[in-house]
């Protein structure tokens, strides 16, 4: 079943045509990797699904973007509600300057949840889901800045999970991390795909190969090819895809 579908999506930043007629579908409870050289539009495409591009004033979007069959760019769509359903993890760990506990509780609190027991339970569950509970359970009242970079990124994942999204967008989530932390994040993605539809932007070919079920190759704002990951990596149809994954450019 398709969780997300886009039909002929075009996006302009002012005069710059950043996404050119992109149509693709994303399968529920799977990991889709978006790859391509810098500036190819993959992050821009990812940010369509929680409408993060709205923050840029010069942006213009055409086409249909459907999440669970509903056009999220229709008039009257509640963007805050959409973002609760479509969580996001950013390239650099960006915890709030608050305690570990408050970082996770933030999403619940802004959604009007005040029940203390419920919040505590949800914080614990999210930290367990992101495999961080064992490391931080004794220092929940400590600043999130005391954690290492890898721990901070898993904290950000836990923070996104706490409000129970169904889609998780990950924008190069391991690019600022060391190899061991990267492995942990990848293991985590593998765990999470049973419950979440995950879209991950990555520069790391091996990472895309390890974690994703399907891979989409973007080039100059166009979707060149999307297929099963093993097909893309072993038998791509397009020569540009082949050149990119074998490292001949990009």
């Amino acid at each position: 079943m398709n969780k997300i579908e886009t039909h002929n999506v075009n996006l302009h930043y002012g005069d710059f045509h950043a996404l050119k007629g992109i149509s693709m579908s994303i399968v529920e409870n799977s990991v889709t990797a978006l790859i391509g050289p810098s500036g190819c539009g993959k992050s821009t495409y990812l940010r369509l699904f929680n409408r993060m591009n709205d923050l840029i004033s010069s942006v213009k979007i055409e086409g249909d973007i459907l999440v669970e069959g509903k056009d999220i760019y229709e008039r009257g769509v509640d963007v805050d509600e959409l973002r609760k359903k479509v969580g996001m993890v950013f390239q650099k760990p960006n915890p709030f300057p608050k305690t570990i506990f408050e970082n996770i509780a933030y999403g619940l609190r802004v959604n009007g949840i005040k029940d203390k027991a419920f919040i505590e339970e949800r914080v614990e569950r999210s930290l367990q889901q992101s495999a961080l509970w064992g490391e931080v359970k004794d220092k929940l009242k400590k600043s999130a800045f005391e954690l290492s970079g890898g721990q901070q990124q898993r904290l950000c994942i836990a923070r996104a999970l706490a409000i129970e999204p169904t889609v998780l967008l990950m924008d190069e989530p391991a690019s600022a991390l060391d190899p061991i932390s990267t492995t942990k994040i990848e293991e985590l993605i593998y765990e999470l795909k049973n419950q979440y539809t995950i879209i991950i932007v990555t520069h790391n070919m091996q990472q895309a190969g390890r974690v994703s079920d399907r891979t989409a190759f973007f080039y100059m704002g166009e979707l060149i090819e999307i297929d099963e990951t093993k097909v893309i990596f072993t038998n791509p149809k397009n020569v540009r895809t082949q050149n990119y994954i074998t490292g001949r450019f990009g």
Binding site: M52, D80, G87, F90, N94, F96, P97, Y106, V110
Partner: peptide, 21 residues
């Protein structure tokens, strides 16, 4: 930092919640 405001918005916080929280 922009990243911190984006994190808040991505969690479903409204513009005002992001400003005062």
């Amino acid at each position: 930092p922009r990243a911190m405001k984006e994190a808040s918005l991505a969690l479903g916080a409204s513009k005002w919640q992001t400003i005062y929280k």
